[in-house]
Design a protein around this nucleic acid. Structure first.
Lengths: 194, 194
DNA sequence: GGAGACATGTAAACTGTTACATGATTAG
DNA sequence: CTAATCATGTAACAGTTTACATGTCTCC
């Protein structure tokens, strides 16, 4: 149940309308907890009914009209409680690792598609890493971290660590898969030329 | 849509009943795609209706009776297609990173609970890492990887890489958070003694 | 006043989680 | 024959995703 807390955090950082939140969930806080606009609107409704946030007063009817939300004391209390509590890490659930394991069963060295897919993922993770580097340079220049900045920087460092881990692993994986595709490990000997 | 493919892979590795699959999803393949027994039974039903797997013949009525499944050619074809296709990596969605970001908003240096929670997570990730090391030593002794073994080893290396990344980051995070709790960055000055 | 972007919202399908129900087998 | 365990399954709900519907504002 992290989405409502992600929204409370985002609204504390800056009161926003639903669409503004959606935009911010496409970057920034969304790098660590993604959400679509439908999830966000539904959750805004729940949070408002629960008395955790309120829409800034506005007389006109609501449809198609911009609606700004801010966090109420109850919402801040809820967020504080969540931060102080305990919550186990989620088990890993990664489709790419799973697909590699499937590839081991249905024909290891076979399709060059696998190598291409790994290269594609490597590019994507490198792009994300570049984005993080840009943000780190912009928001956390050396020697200026203070208080809560230090925590936000830490969060970013976490994202960077994960992306670097993928970059290392994909590089290693590409080497292995290319060796398999090239050498045709099981001796089936499809031509290496084409 | 990875769960059916995870099940197909597991059944190719070894035909199993629902409960046996459930056990295997608590380790092994489940380290990369976890699932509960209800998800598994539901998905087994769907896969059977789709003609991707079949229950080994057995005359007695089904309730409470062990039921072994095996993959049919259509199922293997489906799995091969999935392996060959493209699928973007999932965006990161991590509650701990999110909570740290929330902590930056609702009171950074405050509760010592945060440090304790980070230590707890560090322990959990170290335990998982130890488990992976055990498996690597048992299943992939140096110099014996061949063909599909090399791919399965790669999957394990991926899990190890991620856990190591968490271990590094949590160590760094603990240092920062303990400095904040100790120095009480915002000057609120709760006693450092306890 | 029509096109397109902005903004909020509803509906349905799918996935994941928790609780419980039922039948079979085995040990005492 | 009772209790415990193994095994399969149903039901209900919460969370996620995708597609679509509706209303407003701006520019031409």
């Amino acid at each position: 149940m992290s989405l409502p807390h992600a929204i409370l955090t985002a609204l504390l950082e800056k009161p926003s309308s639903g669409l503004e939140l959606t935009r911010r969930f496409d970057k920034s806080i969304g790098y660590f907890w993604s959400a679509t606009h439908q999830q966000i609107y539904r959750e805004l409704g729940r949070l408002e009914r629960a008395g955790h946030i309120r829409a800034l007063p506005c007389e006109v009817p609501t449809r198609g009209q911009k609606k700004e939300y801010e966090v109420l004391p109850a919402g801040r209390a809820e967020l504080t409680a969540w931060v102080s509590g305990a919550e186990d890490p989620r088990p890993v659930r990664d489709p790419l690792l799973l697909r590699l394991r499937a590839a081991a069963m249905v024909g290891a060295g076979g399709p060059e598609g696998l190598g291409a897919e790994l290269r594609r993922h490597l590019e994507l993770h490198r792009a994300q890493l570049a984005e993080y580097a840009r943000i780190e340079e912009r928001d956390f220049p050396p020697g200026r971290d203070t208080g809560e900045d230090r925590l936000r920087h830490l969060v970013l460092r976490g994202g960077i660590g994960l992306e670097e881990s993928w970059e290392r692993w994909l590089t290693e994986a590409l080497a292995v898969v290319e060796a398999l595709e090239d050498g045709t490990a099981d001796g089936a000997g499809s031509g290496s030329g084409g």
